[in-house]
Design a protein around this nucleic acid. Sequence first.
DNA 1: AAAACGTCCAACCGCCGAGGT
DNA 2: GACCTCGGCGGTTGGACGTTT
Length: 314
Amino acid sequence: MDMAHERNASSEEEVMAGDLRRGPWTVEEDLLLVNYIAAHGEGRWNSLARSAGLKRTGKSCRLRWLNYLRPDLRRGNITPQEQLLILELHSRWGNRWSKIAQHLPGRTDNEIKNYWRTRVQKHAKQLKCDVNSKQFKDVMRYLWMPRLVERIQAAASSSSGTAAGQQQHNGGSEGLYESPELPTGDACWPPAEYFTVAGGQLHGTPVPELSSTTAGSSSPSTDSGAGAQPSWPTPADGAVEWFSTTACDASSAAAAAMRDAELAQPPCQVGQTWTSESSLPGLGFPELAVTDFEIGSFDVESIWSMDDDLWYTV
DNA sequence: AAAACGTCCAACCGCCGAGGT
DNA sequence: GACCTCGGCGGTTGGACGTTT
């Protein structure tokens, strides 16, 4: 199983906290928990822990079950589709991991949180920018997310010939993109309510519980103008922050004032190259070329040369 | 070969809100 | 209303593992 299980169950890692065990779970504990839940179901974790004969806190049992033992967990790398969804949802909700996880079936909040901290924040660090800064968010929205969409589209189109017949999904006439990491017959991804592929195009639809301002009203062009259309935030979305050319210190009063001004204006500050006329009709998303992208001191080319498959894995 | 460094992720911690008494 | 218990959440940590020097 996992490496934790290979450890000696009587080692000093298993420090007793009172009468409760801590540290890595053993195979025996996992079996106790799984069998008990199979027989009695979840809930009342403290009493469950006692009844199952586990010397663990209810919290620990709950965490172990939700993050590791649950049968419906997805394993393996975060797919580009999932990456795209995480970026998009994080841009809306911030560190609401559990909420984000609700929209990635089989993924846990812990997994998404770890992904964000280890992968996304690393890129922010490489850009010498705070991960929550406006600049970094803009990099994500205008560079990485379109790039991800391109990758998804490329994968979808390259597999459409052979996999089209396998990608029929429940009730829809459009073929869903299926993650290449999933075995045939596994759940399609992303779920139909988010993105679908029809006519070689990736389409975004509103995420449940999200602001209706993004519903079917917005989609970006990619930097190659490919026309992929996940559910991007729009200028009309009050929660969306738009470009500024200020330094990375997003907390400065000047930057805040500039943001306020930007929010009252059409979203155009990318080297002044974007105008309402240059956006795709009705899409509200600037049509950008990478070379147009100038914010602060970012070395845009360095992003593409990063030796990291975060944004490119298929 | 091995030390140093970086990455990943399971698990824990502290806080908070909901619900019950 | 006060108190307590519990579940859930986000932040953090420790250690295994991989990579680089």
